[in-house]
Write a protein that binds this DNA or RNA. Structure first.
Lengths: 175, 175
DNA sequence: GGGAGATGATTAACATGTTAAGTGAATTCC
DNA sequence: GGAATTCACTTAACATGTTAATCATCTCCC
């Protein structure tokens, strides 16, 4: 049922004998976002690497500097990491003594994490370089344009937040 | 030396006793791009999953429908995958008989890949759903706004392409 | 034409993304 | 007040991202 309906929107597919046209692949939104993000991260990664940090580890440490303590779940939300990834990284960062962890007061399930003095020192060593890079990007792209881009990205995120994934109907049809 | 110069741009850091302020973390460009892309992919992933494909496998198959044959290096560029990732995925896709691979005519180093009939069939089963999702996103976000966003993303990419990563200076300083 | 270097692809090793399952602790609800 | 459920976090398993190393070919140049 869902199949039939979906098939209706498929463009004629005999034009090129064995191709499903679709949008030209490299211009799809996911690819545009992926390439843009990679172009940005390519600027930051070398500096992080010089300090022995991955992008995700940096995100976590950066998020921890925003408050004294934070629960793991909240940290996952802020650093935009899935639970399993966060678990592994926290284990490693704790082993490197860059963070500290303790149980929450009223709930033994929850863990509370904070950055250590050593972690702060590392952050302070990396942050200046990151700021320089960020400033260079802002200057070359244009501060106003950058702000506009970020607003459009936020709007996209907000737009999609209210969209249940359309692929779900298909699952039901196949059950 | 690099340290001293970089330190100059660090804002006063005694305001909060133990924080390096920087830009509010969640509003950084990399995070904005990451969240936006994730919001988009969240729409597509369930459908791909229902067909036994990951996002990257889909990218490869999609890229292969654009031409009869393509060299592995060119495929990596188009699908925006690093060589090692592509190597692994091609091995799996070949094992599943979704693609075919042969050596190039004049250069035994190069491999040439093409999509199989089975792969094409799979693409044709997935594409309609993807189109529906893409159309829904376009409609809700606005076609004009979406085009503008993609143009700005492309411009960002182009801007950064000409930027050697700033972290490199730091390496030299530490050698 | 043969050896040094360049090139295309793969493999290795480690870190993360992603989904599912597991574990222990709190909540609910009867 | 205890069984069932929910919740926070972790583990497990597999796929990919990332960098370095390897391997086979190819090119160039003497």
């Amino acid at each position: 049922m869902a199949r039939k309906k979906l098939d209706e929107i498929r463009p004629e597919d005999d034009a090129s004998a064995r191709r499903t046209p679709m949008r030209e692949f490299s211009r799809s939104l996911p690819m545009s976002l992926l390439r843009a993000r990679e172009a940005v991260m390519r600027q930051f990664r070398p500096s992080l690497r010089n300090h022995g940090l991955t992008e995700q580890q940096w995100r976590i440490l950066r998020a921890l500097t925003a408050g004294d303590e934070i629960e793991v779940t909240e940290l996952a939300r802020v650093a935009f990491l899935l639970g399993p990834s966060l678990s592994r990284i926290l284990r490693d960062l704790e082993a490197r003594a860059l963070i500290e962890r303790r149980a929450a007061e009223n709930d033994a399930r929850r863990a509370v994490v904070s950055i250590s003095a050593k972690g702060l020192k590392l952050i302070e060593a990396v942050a200046p370089t990151s700021e320089v890079i960020y400033a260079a990007i802002t200057k070359r792209y244009g501060a106003r344009k950058l702000a506009e881009l970020q607003e459009m990205l936020g709007a996209l995120e907000a737009t999609l937040a209210g969209m249940g994934s359309a692929g779900e109907a298909e699952v039901e049809a196949e059950d």
